[in-house]
């Protein structure tokens, strides 16, 4: 009798811990963080009500605008370049290439690395004294200058360079899988109709990969908004705070400068940004699933 009852409720029993985890550690924590962002917390978290003080402080802080602008620059360039390179490499690789497996492995391995490792490597490569600049001098470009890493105007672009290096191979893999998923007979039909290869790509294949573009965009946007390790390892947010991103900003305020309230408020803003990107996507996804 008991075993029978146990067997009946087993599915619920198995899912129960997950339910608790989702409820407490995801949704509960988001609410707690929201509360903190409306509290007067500074050095220690305080669960009181202080209205929008923290948000006012957040937006009054000059670092906020820098981090937001940097995110905009970084995300735009990072996403566009990754999509462009990824698609280009996927199309090239789709031409019945000998050694495709090896090439794919080479394009993809950076994805296995930690952003800390990537940042460390590029920090050395882009080093103004002994790195890329010196290499160009040695080749013969005596006057070549490359100081982006220590130039507060340009530091954020070095993050783009390293980020693209790490993530574009993954986008290539997404696109390649998309290309391979396209119905061969459609392409054959187009060839019989006399369409050239570039036309087939432009008019048939690439439009047919809309969902892949979408997935890739969402994944890249997500990586961009969460970017933390890469900046920490590459520029440390510097020079000064010129290459801060929201994630490093949040870390700095919440965990090193003891301004918990501002940190919580900035985390909420990050959540809003992610939602602004993802909710329309999920919505359209769910709709298309319901229609299918």
């Amino acid at each position: 009798m008991v075993t029978k009852w146990l067997e009946r409720i087993m599915p619920r029993l198995v899912l129960a811990p997950t339910f608790v985890i989702a409820l407490v550690f995801i949704h509960g924590f988001i609410l707690l963080n929201a509360w903190l962002s409306f509290s007067s917390s500074n050095l220690m978290p305080k669960y009181d009500w202080a209205g929008f003080i923290q948000y006012e402080r957040l937006f009054a802080n000059e670092r906020t605008a820098v981090a937001a602008t940097n995110l905009f620059i970084f995300a735009t360039l990072f996403i566009l370049i990754c999509l462009f390179l990824g698609l280009l490499m996927a199309i090239l690789l789709d031409q019945r290439i000998r050694g495709e497996g090896v090439i794919r492995t080479i394009y993809l391995y950076p994805m296995a690395l930690s952003f800390i490792v990537t940042g460390t490597a590029w920090k050395w490569i882009l080093n103004p004294g002994l790195g890329f600049e010196k290499l160009m001098h040695d080749i013969g470009f005596e006057t070549f200058q490359f100081d982006w890493l220590v130039n507060s105007e340009m530091a954020i672009y070095t993050v783009v360079i390293a980020g693209v290096w790490q993530s574009s191979g993954f986008v290539m893999a997404l696109f390649l899988a998309g290309l391979r998923g396209i119905d061969e007979s459609i392409i054959k039909a187009a060839q019989i109709d006399g369409a050239s290869l570039p036309t087939i790509y432009r008019k048939i294949i690439i439009p047919g990969m809309r969902p892949v573009f979408f997935s890739a965009f969402i994944i890249l946007a997500h990586i961009a908004i969460k970017s933390f390790d890469l900046v920490m390892a590459l520029t440390g947010g510097g020079p000064g705070y010129s290459s801060d991103l929201p994630a490093t900003f949040m870390y700095t305020f919440a965990f090193t400068r003891g301004q918990i309230g501002i940190g919580a408020a900035s985390a909420m803003m990050m959540l809003m940004t992610v939602m602004a990107v993802i909710v329309p996507y999920l919505y359209s996804e769910l709709r298309s699933q319901r229609h299918a």
């Binding site: 599915p11 899912l15 997950t18 339910f19 985890i21 989702a22 409820l23 550690f25 995801i26 949704h27 509960g28 924590f29 988001i30 707690l32 963080n33 903190l36 978290p45 997500h222 908004i225 969460k226 929201p246 994630a247 949040m250 870390y251 919440a254 965990f255 918990i260 940190g263 919580a264 900035s266 985390a267 909420m268 990050m270 959540l271 992610v274 993802i278």
Partner: peptide
């Protein structure tokens, strides 16, 4: 059960910054 799944799935999308302080 699908509600539990949807609730959990949110965890794939949130920036972890929103859970750092409570955690």
């Amino acid at each position: 059960s699908n509600v539990v799944f949807s609730m959990l799935l949110v965890g794939c999308f949130i920036p972890f910054q929103v859970i750092l302080l409570p955690m």
